[in-house]
Amino acid sequence: MSSTPPSSAAPSLTLPASAPGPLISAAGLGVRLGDHWPIRGIDLDLVAGQVVTVMGPNGAGKTTLIRAILGLIAADEGRVERRADLTVGYVPQRLVIDRVLPLTVRRLMTLTKRVPVAKIHDALAMTGVADRLDTPVQGLSGGEFQRVLLARAIAAEPDLLVLDEPVQGVDYAGEAALYALIAEIRDRLGCGILMVSHDLHVVMSATDRVVCLNGHICCSGAPKDVAGHPEYRRLFGPDAGAFAVYEHHHDHDHDLDGSVIGGPEHHDHHHH
């Protein structure tokens, strides 16, 4: 990255709020850990109304990329520009709420911002946990908690939603419904969505753009195109394309029974 300035202090610039274009824009982004660069040379634009999914094997730097984009860790190279007054909703990969902290779902919903009660109800209803409003968060199951966290992130209607492995703890049947929900959130809120997933089966259907990461961006583009990309197949094995080209159309009919999921043996597409 000889083109980037040697000053390692990561400039976090602010784009004017009115400017059309990306919500967040990373250029030549690199993060160093000792001698090792978990990610390097990343160019990535996040725009409103688009779901970008970052995929990659373990240790590919997915979470590092998310953290750098969010400004939680400084860039050692390149830069991350964010639009002025950008509001972010974030669902971290792992969140454990200490038992000693008394917290109901209702209170968790307004953790970082005030939100009108009606919007709290809407968000919880959307993710299917409206009946949990007054439950202590420690009394939720893993899947319920994940849905509540998603509801919390969307209740304030952020410009950008960032989801690090959003279906953790959600049973297999619920996964497809949750991904469909994420696409619906994009349509309803018009927000940009950045998510991390290694769920080859179902993630493609809810994604506008796939970024295939392995320290650097191996390939990126529409799910169909990426699935056929040799780099992608090299990274995820020869069967990956079979998973990946599975598409289902957004008729919003599928529900929590997850019946729309097609495994590899079900795929009936013309790709090879």
């Binding site: 953290r67 969010l70 400004g71 939680l72 509001t87 972010v88 909703g89 974030y90 971290p92 969140l95 709420i97 902290l101 917290l103 968790l108 307004t110 953790l111 970082t112 911002k113 952020p158 960032v162």
Partner: peptide
């Protein structure tokens, strides 16, 4: 108070959302 509670729950989440 609100910021303090948010970072008590999770500092990364709080920071990402502007605390």
């Amino acid at each position: 108070w609100r910021d303090l509670l948010a970072l008590t729950v999770d500092p990364d989440l709080a920071a990402a959302e502007g605390v």
